[in-house]
Simulated scan of single mutants.
Amino acid sequence: MAKSVRRKLHQMTQIRIRSAEERIRQILDHRTEGLAARKDAASAPAETLSRALVCGSGRERFGIPVEEVAEVLPAQKCVPVPDASPALIGLFGRGGRLVSVIDLATALGLEPATADEGQHFVLLRREQPQVALRVERAFAVSEILPLTGAEAAGFRNDAVTGYARPAAEMADRDETLSLLDTERLLRPFLSSSPVPGV
């Protein structure tokens, strides 16, 4: 009888040891999985929002990728170019080089701005030829949230590559930005310009 009691006590102890070991193993496995998931999340690239210069022309708002913008300047007098496209409003000098100025609204087939006050030139980051876009107003650089699905369908112009909404700092404006591809926008003007290199 004493042997059977001892045997049962030994079995119960073994079961307890096994269940305690199993619990420890489960806890360690769970912690290992958690640490591995944390490491994967840290190594995964964080989702970065695109940044764009938000400009206005008429009732429209446009986003120009910040990588394509060299500088924003106040509008200034331009020398007209004879027989040029109506969108090419003229030339001005900057740093010993001529800069062609294209009115954004006219280039997109919109009603051009009437008043010169408060307008800006957006100098694009390109070498030859140097080009600035005339906009009614350059508001700010903003992170943008691209629209998808039905909201992003139906581009009205080749130069518009998508639509987006400004993120947090301009979120009080419930507006949609047309995202511009400046090279597509400039293509018709660069190939048919009457001025060499413009």
Rank of each mutant, 00 (worst) to 15 (best):
F121R: 11
L123Y: 00
H120R: 13
F139S: 14
A153L: 11
Q130P: 07
A140K: 07
P129V: 10
P146S: 02
E143H: 03
F139A: 11
Q130E: 12
P129T: 10
R134I: 12
Q128V: 13
P146T: 05
T148N: 14
E117R: 14
P146I: 05
A140F: 04
A152T: 09
F139L: 13
A115N: 12
E151W: 08
S142M: 03
A153V: 05
R137P: 00
A132H: 08
L147E: 05
P146E: 00
E151G: 13
T148S: 15
R137Q: 06
E143T: 05
F121W: 13
A132C: 09
E143N: 06
T148R: 15
V122H: 04
S142A: 05
D116T: 10
F139P: 07
R134Y: 10
L147T: 04
Q128F: 10
A115W: 08
L147G: 01
R125T: 06
A115Y: 11
P146Y: 06
F139R: 13
L123D: 03
F121M: 14
S142H: 01
F121C: 12
L133R: 07
E151R: 14
A140G: 03
D116I: 09
D116W: 09
E127D: 12
L145D: 11
V122E: 02
L133K: 09
A132R: 06
A115E: 13
E151H: 15
V122S: 00
L124T: 05
G149A: 07
Q119W: 08
F139D: 14
R137D: 05
R126C: 00
R125L: 06
L133E: 06
V131G: 06
L124V: 03
V122G: 02
R134H: 13
A138H: 01
F139W: 14
H120C: 12
A150D: 15
A138Q: 00
F139Y: 14
A153I: 06
G118V: 01
A152R: 12
G149M: 13
D116M: 09
Q119D: 11
E136A: 04
L124K: 00
T148A: 15
F121D: 12
E117A: 12
V131Y: 08
